[in-house]
């Protein structure tokens, strides 16, 4: 009979009326964030960064600004450059993650946060100080070593620079002789 399918449609909507809502009321509830989530803040390990600016070169938009000067300690022994500026212009960032892919020393990671709304555009530029102070909750985007550690950015503890590399951190230390480890020497020897 004509109209039977329409009745069927009414039944479909009625069954959905009985269902639990699918949506999530955001500030109270949150959807599960997956470990590879490419978040708004970046996680940067200064200890690992050599200032090679691979990320800046590889960024499709050119929003990473890096200014370095030769290190005062032992540049000839392969020491890293001193980083003066490391600005990420977040307002133009499209979170493609290519900078992370380009980083040869596993120093730059996508972050896992996403609530970085600001009222002024200038606040959207992540400066080197903010990068230094930010919580180290790296995303596992393009970092298979974190995935094999079963690391979860949301729930696991923040990771130190020694834990995140593809190679052991001691290799890293050996390679860059004059590296300043910022008061953690005692710990390193242990």
């Amino acid at each position: 009979m004509y109209g039977l399918e329409m009745a069927k449609g009414l039944l479909v909507t009625l069954t959905n009326l009985m269902r639990k809502p699918f949506t999530v009321a955001y500030p109270e509830q949150r959807v599960r964030q997956h470990p590879r989530f490419r978040g708004e803040e970046f996680t940067w390990y200064e200890e690992r960064c050599t200032g090679c600016a691979s990320c800046a070169k590889y960024c499709p938009l050119g929003i990473i600004k890096i200014v370095t000067s030769p290190s005062e300690t032992a540049p000839l022994q392969g020491d890293k450059y001193l980083l003066e500026t490391f600005d990420i212009e977040l307002q133009r960032c499209m979170f493609c993650g290519l900078c992370v892919e380009a980083c040869p020393y596993d120093a730059l990671f996508m972050g896992s946060g996403f609530e970085e709304g600001q009222y002024r555009r200038t606040d959207l530029v992540i400066s080197i100080d903010r990068l230094r102070q930010a919580d180290k909750n790296p995303s596992t985007w393009f970092r298979p070593q974190l995935e094999s550690m079963d690391y979860r950015p949301g729930t696991s503890r923040p990771l130190g620079w020694r834990d995140v590399g593809r190679e052991g951190w001691r290799w890293h230390q050996r390679e860059k002789a004059g590296m300043r480890l910022q008061g953690r020497n005692a710990e390193d020897d242990a």
Binding site: N16, L17, P21, F22, T23, A25
Partner: peptide, 13 residues
């Protein structure tokens, strides 16, 4: 509210 529930969402809350 009702439309929201028909559509499997919450509606104004």
């Amino acid at each position: 509210r009702l439309l929201g529930r028909f559509q499997n969402r919450v509606g104004p809350n």
